[in-house]
Design a protein around this nucleic acid. Sequence first.
DNA 1: TAATTGTATTATATGATATAATACAAAACA
DNA 2: TGTTTTGTATTATATCATATAATACAATTA
Lengths: 128, 128
Amino acid sequence: MVLKIDMSGETPIYIQLRNEIVKGIGRGELAAGENLPTVRQLASELGVNTMTVSKAYQLLKSEEFIETDRRKGAAVKPAQSMGGPAAAGYREHLEDELELLSAEAKLRGLKREEFLRLCEDAFAEMGV
Amino acid sequence: MVLKIDMSGETPIYIQLRNEIVKGIGRGELAAGENLPTVRQLASELGVNTMTVSKAYQLLKSEEFIETDRRKGAAVKPAQSMGGPAAAGYREHLEDELELLSAEAKLRGLKREEFLRLCEDAFAEMGV
DNA sequence: TAATTGTATTATATGATATAATACAAAACA
DNA sequence: TGTTTTGTATTATATCATATAATACAATTA
C-alpha cells in the first residue's frame, strides 16, 4: 500500500498515517486479517520515529479498526466486529463533517448534483 | 447565529470558530454583505482572547469567505466573488475529505444508500 | 474630540507533536 | 537454550502551535 505522508504539512504525522491506513482498508488494499507493517519497518521506511507509528496504531486500535498483538504485530480487524464503543458517536461525527463540507461546497459554487456526484464517486472507490 | 465552541475539545478554537461561521454562511443564517460581530464582541461573548477571534477572521478572509475593513468591521463576502486563488486546490481537498469519510463509513458498516442519504441531507440544509 | 474597528506587537504559558535512546514482556524460532 | 522480533513503556528533550495579556496603532464614525 502507498502511504502518502506530507512531512511539512499541518496535519500531524500520526494522524496522516491513521487516515492513510483507514483509506487503505476502506479501498480493500488491506484485507481483514492482513498484517500491517511493523512499527519499526514503517518508521524506517518513512523516516520517522517508531513511537510516531505506534501512536497511529494505538489510535487505530482505539477506533477498533485494527488489533495489535505484542508478538504477532498489528492486523486489520474483521469488518463484522465494528459495533463496539468506538462506533458510538460516529454518526454524529459524520453528520458534522458532511455539514461543513456541504457549506464549503455551497460557498465555492458547487451545485447539488456536482457535490453528490463527488460523494458517490468517493464511496464507489471503497470495497472489494 | 449560534456558535458552538468546545473549549476542551482537541480542535483549536479559531478553527472551530472558522468552521461554525462557514456553516452559518452556508445555511444562510449569515447573508452576503451582513456584518459579523466585532472581534471584541465575539471574544467577550465566548470568553476568549480578541486575537483568537481575529485569527479566525483572518483565516476566513484568506479563504475569501469574508472581507474585513479596519473601520467597518467584517462582512460576509458575496457568493459570486468565489473564484479567487483560494478556490484553487479546493476540489482536491474536498475529494480527499470525502474519500476519508467514505472509508470510515464503509468500515463502520454504512451502506451506500445510507451514506449518500446523509450527504443529500447535509447539502439540503444549505442555502436559501 | 471620543469611540470603534481590525490589526500589530511583545511577552509569556501551555500543550501537542516528534525525536532519541533504552528497556521490557512474550512469543517465535534456530 | 539463547536469539530475534513484536508492540509498548519510559525518560528526556526540543520545537511549534495555540492562546492569553496588555498595549498600541491607523482610520473612520459619531
